[in-house]
C-alpha cells in the first residue's frame, strides 16, 4: 500500500528517515571509532579515523574495570533475576489470565499500580533494612529487588500469551485425569514458552543495564556489576577516553549482537506491553 503517490513526497520521506538514522547512529559510531584510538588522537579529533589501531585499549579496559569479575557478577545477577521472574511470573500470569481466583482483578490492579511507583518510594527503607540484615553486597538480594520491580511487567506480558491458549486444551487435560499442577506445567508452560523466552531476554537486558539499584546495593569492588564498574572507571580512575569507549564497547557489544539477532522478540516484548488493541 502507498499512502501518497507523489514522487517528491517519497524522496522527502526517505531523506527525513535517513537523517534520523544518522542522528541515531552517530553517537554509536563515535563509541566504536574512538574505542580503537589513542587518547592523544581523540583530543585532536573525535571524528578522525584511527592512525593506529590501539587494540590494547580493550586489554586495559578489561583489567582496569575488572571485567573478569564484574561481568561475571552481571551475568549471575541477570541469570538469577531471569529465573526468579520467569518462574514466579508465569505462575501468576496463568492464574490471572484464567481468572482462577475471585480476586484476580484486585491483584492485577495492584501489580499495575506498583509499576508506576517511583523507586525512591521504597528505596530508602529497603536500603537501610538490607543494611541491618547484612544484605548489602549480596547479589541474590539484588536479584530479588529486580524481581519485584520487573515482575509486574513480565506478568502482564505473559498474561497475553496465556490468554491466547484455547481453554479446551486445559479442559481436555483435566478430563484425562491431569492434576491442576500438571495442566500448568505439562500443558500450558510448553505452549507459552516463546513468551517466556521473550520475557527472559528483556529481563536479562534490563538487569544487565540497570544502574540505580546496582550502584546503591553493590558497593564492594568485587561485587560491582559491569555497568557500575564502567561508571566508576569513566568517572574517576582514568581520563583516557579510548580506554573508556573500549570498556563501553565490551559491555554493549554482546547486547547489540543479541538485539540484532532477535530484534522482533525484543521490540515486541518491550513495546508490546504498551500497545493496546
Amino acid at each position: 500500500m502507498r499512502l501518497i503517490e507523489s514522487r517528491t513526497t517519497f524522496v522527502l520521506t526517505y531523506t527525513a528517515l535517513a537523517i534520523l538514522l544518522l542522528i541515531t547512529l552517530f553517537p554509536i559510531a563515535l563509541l566504536v571509532l574512538n574505542s580503537l584510538k589513542p587518547a592523544t588522537q581523540i583530543v585532536q579529533s573525535p571524528l578522525a579515523w584511527p592512525e593506529v589501531y590501539r587494540w590494547d585499549n580493550f586489554v586495559r579496559a578489561w583489567n582496569d574495570a575488572r571485567f573478569g569479575t564484574t561481568m561475571l557478577n552481571s551475568a549471575m545477577l541477570a541469570a538469577m533475576t531471569i529465573v526468579l521472574v520467569c518462574s514466579t511470573g508465569s505462575l501468576t500470569a496463568y492464574v490471572l489470565a484464567r481468572r482462577k481466583i475471585k480476586s484476580w482483578k484486585i491483584v492485577t490492579f495492584y501489580l499495575l499500580a506498583t509499576t508506576t511507583a517511583p523507586i525512591q518510594l521504597f528505596l530508602f527503607p529497603l536500603y537501610f533494612g538490607f543494611a541491618k540484615l547484612g544484605l548489602i553486597n549480596n547479589v541474590f538480594a539484588v536479584s530479588l529487588i529486580f524481581t519485584a520491580i520487573y515482575s509486574p511487567f513480565a506478568v502482564m506480558l505473559l498474561r497475553t500469551y496465556f490468554l491466547a491458549v484455547p481453554k479446551e486444551l486445559e479442559e481436555a487435560a483435566l478430563i484425562d485425569g491431569a492434576t491442576h499442577w500438571q495442566v500448568f506445567s505439562k500443558v500450558m508452560l510448553p505452549i507459552v514458552s516463546p513468551g517466556i523466552l521473550t520475557v527472559a531476554l528483556i529481563i536479562g537486558l534490563y538487569s544487565w543495564n540497570e544502574f540505580l539499584i546496582a550502584t546503591t546495593f553493590l558497593q564492594r569492588a568485587d561485587r560491582f556489576t559491569a555497568v557500575v564498574s564502567f561508571f566508576l572507571l569513566s568517572g574517576q580512575y582514568t581520563s583516557d577516553w579510548g580506554e573508556i569507549m573500549a570498556a563501553a564497547l565490551i559491555i554493549v557489544l554482546p547486547v547489540i549482537i543479541l538485539f540484532v539477532a532477535l530484534q522482533r522478540r525484543f521490540i515486541e516484548g518491550m513495546a508490546g506491553g504498551s500497545v493496546k488493541g
Binding site: 541515531t24 563509541l31 564502567f230 561508571f231 518491550m270
Partner: peptide, 23 residues
C-alpha cells in the same frame, strides 16, 4: 529503520551518558 531507531533503548544509560559526555 525500526531496528536502528530502537537501538539506543538497549544501550545502558550509564554508557549512553558517558558517550555523550566525552565524545
Amino acid at each position: 529503520f525500526q531496528v536502528i531507531y530502537f537501538l539506543p533503548m538497549v544501550i545502558a544509560t550509564a554508557i549512553t551518558a558517558r558517550v555523550w559526555q566525552g565524545m
